[in-house]
Amino acid sequence: MKEGNGIGWLFLSMAILLEVLGTMSMKWSESFTRLLPSILMFIFYGASFTSLNYTLGYMSVSTVYATWSGVGIVLISLIGYFIFQEKLSIASVCWIAVIVIGVVGLNASTKGH
């Protein structure tokens, strides 16, 4: 892996943002019945995976993938609630908290290595 973990976090942040935009576009595409959101979905996901690939040059795959997927889950759950007016049960909120704890714990445990 290359030196410069700050660059890795920048690529990872971009990958997370692009993945969330891809998921939002997927929702807006209405099962591929709307052309522009359908095209944007592929563009955002492609850019997200490209950024994720660059991230792996700076950080370990376990940290990268857990952070990317975990933060993405949390963000899209919040977006689903606030933007798409989807329900979040108390149980869902609790399980989302477990995901956050897991991502934080994994990142904290890898800093010591």
Rank of each mutant, 00 (worst) to 15 (best):
residue 73 I to Y: 00
residue 4 G to H: 10
residue 13 S to Q: 05
residue 34 R to H: 12
residue 48 S to M: 01
residue 96 I to K: 10
residue 94 C to T: 15
residue 53 N to D: 11
residue 52 L to C: 09
residue 1 M to Y: 01
residue 82 F to L: 10
residue 47 A to R: 00
residue 46 G to A: 11
residue 69 S to M: 12
residue 42 F to D: 00
residue 56 L to V: 07
residue 71 V to N: 05
residue 63 T to H: 07
residue 9 W to R: 06
residue 66 A to G: 13
residue 6 G to W: 14
residue 41 M to V: 00
residue 38 S to W: 01
residue 26 M to V: 09
residue 11 F to D: 08
residue 51 S to W: 08
residue 37 P to V: 09
residue 49 F to S: 01
residue 80 G to D: 04
residue 15 A to H: 00
residue 73 I to D: 00
residue 87 K to S: 11
residue 98 V to T: 03
residue 60 S to R: 05
residue 39 I to N: 04
residue 70 G to I: 07
residue 85 Q to G: 05
residue 33 T to H: 13
residue 58 Y to V: 06
residue 14 M to Y: 11
residue 108 A to L: 15
residue 56 L to K: 05
residue 64 V to H: 02
residue 83 I to A: 10
residue 12 L to K: 06
residue 22 G to Y: 01
residue 24 M to C: 08
residue 75 L to K: 08
residue 4 G to S: 09
residue 45 Y to W: 14
residue 75 L to G: 06
residue 40 L to N: 05
residue 19 E to V: 01
residue 79 I to Q: 09
residue 77 S to W: 11
residue 40 L to E: 02
residue 62 S to Y: 06
residue 93 V to Y: 11
residue 33 T to E: 13
residue 110 T to A: 07
residue 45 Y to C: 04
residue 73 I to C: 01
residue 63 T to L: 15
residue 73 I to W: 00
residue 36 L to H: 06
residue 69 S to G: 14
residue 108 A to F: 14
residue 40 L to S: 03
residue 101 I to R: 05
residue 22 G to R: 01
residue 29 S to I: 09
residue 32 F to V: 13
residue 68 W to H: 12
residue 28 W to A: 14
residue 9 W to V: 05
residue 18 L to M: 05
residue 20 V to E: 13
residue 2 K to D: 06
residue 90 I to E: 06
residue 59 M to L: 15
residue 23 T to F: 08
residue 12 L to I: 07
residue 46 G to E: 07
residue 9 W to K: 04
residue 66 A to L: 12
residue 77 S to M: 09
residue 9 W to I: 10
residue 88 L to C: 07
residue 5 N to R: 14
residue 64 V to I: 03
residue 66 A to T: 14
residue 71 V to Q: 04
residue 68 W to C: 04
residue 8 G to S: 13
residue 57 G to T: 01
residue 53 N to T: 14
residue 36 L to K: 10
residue 74 V to E: 04
residue 88 L to I: 03
residue 27 K to W: 02
residue 45 Y to I: 12
residue 101 I to S: 10
residue 96 I to P: 12
residue 105 G to K: 11
residue 83 I to L: 14
residue 103 V to L: 11
residue 33 T to V: 09
residue 81 Y to C: 11
residue 60 S to F: 00
residue 7 I to F: 08
residue 17 L to A: 15
residue 62 S to F: 02
residue 68 W to I: 08
residue 69 S to W: 00
residue 82 F to M: 05
residue 18 L to A: 01
residue 108 A to T: 11
residue 100 V to G: 05
residue 71 V to K: 07
residue 29 S to F: 07
residue 78 L to S: 04
residue 22 G to C: 03
residue 42 F to G: 06
residue 79 I to C: 09
residue 95 W to C: 14
residue 5 N to G: 02
residue 67 T to R: 08
residue 86 E to C: 04
residue 84 F to I: 12
residue 68 W to G: 08
